[in-house]
């Protein structure tokens, strides 16, 4: 049997080759400026839509100028270690709130380059969906939220409101509730999916909910909503207890409203793929662009590669500035 099986398999392979011939691959002309076009540039993709689609868009653009590109799926935290050793070549979305720790640690160890900052600003904060805002007058102000705390109570919260934070590992501000004297407790969802499940469940049951969220994100399009307005962030808020409304504690303010969104690269990239690295430093996403991409995928349900192609088609003037800007 096994012999028969291998035979048929062999025949199949041979048949395929005869019928279609081995395609020869693209014969790239190696130019000094491009660098090594045969060795693929490896772009990591993570598990949220805008990042995947954007990575595909950039990948397709690099292919346009003659590079070989491969995508590899990685964990969004582990990717910085991979970048340092050159397992992947670049990273397009370094969010300040979630990845600054890992990114900075990698910068310290060496092997990784900061390839510039996008125009898009990010924000990570307590967030209320529209169907909740409608329930309590004065939202999204934090004092109004506190007044309605009972609305957010759960069976096991002892009458206090419940704020669904992200996983502990995201290292958010753990003292804010106490510092602001809020009638809330904080529980930790295990990951992004758990947060959205909380949202969806609340939406289905028309219950009030306040969760950790960030912008730009697909939830904007899905539910509409707003960040809770806490006392504005200030540098001293984190270090100086006397600052702010609670004279005895730090952390009596919201998170910074405009976090950065950076690009990162393996430090071998400028040597190996000079033109690609130049382009990477010029690549610049705006909040709107990231939102559009997320829309294509999450709302219009396009495949990532298709979404990327559509974006490229519709935004020629944007990307040609990245690729062909005069030095």
């Amino acid at each position: 049997m096994s012999r028969k099986f291998t035979k048929t398999l062999g025949a199949m392979v041979a048949g395929t080759m005869l019928a279609f011939g081995a395609s020869t691959g693209q014969a790239g002309t190696t130019t000094a400026a491009l660098g090594d076009v045969d060795d693929p540039i490896i772009i990591p993709v993570h598990n949220w839509s805008s990042q995947i689609a954007m990575s595909h868009a950039v990948g397709q653009l690099l292919e346009k100028i003659g590079y070989t590109v491969e995508y590899t799926t990685t964990d969004s935290q582990a990717v910085y270690e991979a970048l340092r050793v050159g397992d992947v070549t670049l990273e397009l979305e370094v969010w300040e709130g979630s990845f600054a720790t890992a990114f900075n640690a990698a910068l310290d160890k060496g092997g990784i380059l900061d390839a510039g900052t996008h125009d898009a600003v990010t924000r990570e904060e307590w967030w209320l969906p529209d169907f909740t805002i409608a329930k309590c007058p004065g939202l999204p102000d934090w004092e109004a939220l506190n007044a309605c705390a009972e609305m957010f109570a759960r069976p096991d919260s002892g009458g206090k409101g419940v704020y669904v934070d992200g996983p502990v590992e995201w290292l958010h501000d753990l003292d804010r509730i106490e510092a602001l004297g809020m009638n809330f407790i904080q529980i930790h969802a295990g990951g992004a999916a758990a947060l959205w499940a909380e949202l969806e469940s609340a939406a289905a049951n028309d219950e009030a909910v306040v969760v950790f969220n960030w912008s730009p994100n697909f939830t904007d399009a899905l539910y509409g909503g707003a960040f809770v307005e806490f006392p504005a962030f200030h540098d001293r808020c984190k270090t100086d207890a006397s600052w702010g409304i609670n004279p005895n504690m730090t952390s009596d303010c919201g998170s910074p409203a405009g976090g950065y969104l950076k690009k990162a690269a393996w430090d071998g990239m400028p040597r190996k793929w000079p033109a690609a690295y130049k382009a990477l430093t010029r690549i610049n996403f705006t909040t709107n662009m990231v939102g559009t991409m997320a829309m294509f995928v999450d709302v219009d349900e396009m495949e990532h590669a298709d979404a990327a192609a559509r974006w490229i088609e519709e935004n020629e003037e944007v990307w040609s500035a990245w690729l062909y800007a005069s030095q």
Partner: peptide
């Protein structure tokens, strides 16, 4: 996991 969260919330 996800339907379980939707039914019973995070706990």
């Amino acid at each position: 996991i996800i339907p379980a969260i939707m039914l019973f919330r995070v706990n």
